[in-house]
């Protein structure tokens, strides 16, 4: 039995369609990521999965239980971490954890082994009020709170937003550890680079799924040969590339510009053309498409 089965989920708010005919399934023990920008419908989808919203259309089950009709049974099996960390700022770290343990009918002691690797890192500050913690520590506390009742599934809505890179790396390591405990995890993020941490990902944009697969296969699905062109003057490089007939859709990408060449044009030809345009020393090399390249391609196909 799959952990999640979702069929044709749709959610409308007036004339706005936040989630548009989304179907997916998540296996037990899988770490599944929803990758998409703000406003793509990730939060709405997660709230539906967490039994908080009844979708306008479609059907979704968790462990075979319908989130609409069986929400009472499901709620004790879900660990949900909403986008804003859901902590009581005026309570201490320990009081927050205790509170969440109590409302889920358990104690810190009972499931301490599960949260230990995470909670240990914030335990030195357990007498501190949650409002005075750094973003990374809030994130870990919120995760501890979501885990304290030993849920079968974790639903984490943008857990890494607003948190620094070090804390984010640590957070993904923690998730990998929880996955090994057999907990199913669905997680959303606007950051494409975090996709690689997941077993499988779904790319989502404007309420629609653009693709579902393993990160590796998603990257391989990029249909064309991709080149990275670099030159110190990136703006002129970008403008020059745009004017070249051999080049399709040049896109700035970090310190280079990613381009696709028309009809397998010769990269050396492009380099010469750039030199002709006064951009000597430009480097052009084939590159491996990232998730973001694929996302871009899929987005452009949608349009």
């Amino acid at each position: 039995m799959n952990a999640i089965e979702a069929y044709n989920i749709t959610q409308r708010y007036g004339r706005v369609t936040a989630v548009d005919d989304v179907s997916f399934s998540v296996g037990e023990g899988e770490l599944f990521g929803f990758i998409g920008p703000d406003g793509a419908g990730k939060t709405t989808l997660f709230r539906i999965a967490a039994t908080l919203i009844i979708p306008s259309g479609g059907r979704i089950t968790l462990f075979g239980l319908n989130v609409v009709s069986n929400f009472r049974e499901l709620r004790s099996q879900i660990g949900y971490m909403p986008g804003r960390f859901s902590l009581y700022h005026d309570l201490t770290v320990e009081e927050n954890l205790n509170f969440y343990a109590t409302i889920f009918g358990t104690t810190i002691k009972e499931n301490y082994h599960l949260i230990e690797p995470i909670y240990k890192q914030i335990e030195p500050f357990k007498k501190r009020q949650a409002g005075r913690l750094s973003g990374g520590m809030k994130q870990k506390l919120a995760l501890s709170c979501a885990l304290i009742h030993k849920p079968r599934i974790l639903i984490l809505d943008e857990p890494t937003t607003g948190v620094d890179a070090v804390s984010r790396t640590e957070f993904w390591e923690i998730l990998a550890g929880l996955k090994n405990e057999g907990i199913t995890i669905i997680v959303s993020t606007p950051y494409m680079d975090e996709a690689l941490r997941c077993d499988r990902i779904a790319l989502i944009q404007e309420g629609k799924l653009l693709g579902i697969d393993t990160p590796a296969r998603i990257r391989n699905s990029y249909s064309r040969k991709l080149y990275a062109v670099s030159h110190p003057d990136r703006y002129r490089l970008l403008l020059a590339l745009r004017s070249l007939p051999q080049v399709v859709s040049p896109e700035p990408f970090g310190d280079s510009v990613h381009v696709v060449l028309r009809d397998d044009a010769d990269p050396a030809e492009v380099k010469r053309a750039l030199e002709g345009a006064g951009l000597s020393g430009a480097i052009i090399a084939e590159t491996v498409p990232g998730i973001e390249d694929v996302f871009l391609e899929l987005m452009q196909k949608e349009v």
């Binding site: 920008p37 703000d38 937003t161 606007p190 950051y191 703006y235 002129r236 970008l238 896109e251 700035p252």
Partner: peptide
């Protein structure tokens, strides 16, 4: 550009390049 979609993001960085130029 955190949280914006990849297309907008590219356009935004292009604006930044143009500004710097």
């Amino acid at each position: 550009t955190s949280g914006v979609d990849p297309v907008t993001r590219r356009q935004f960085w292009e604006m930044i390049y143009e500004t710097a130029s």
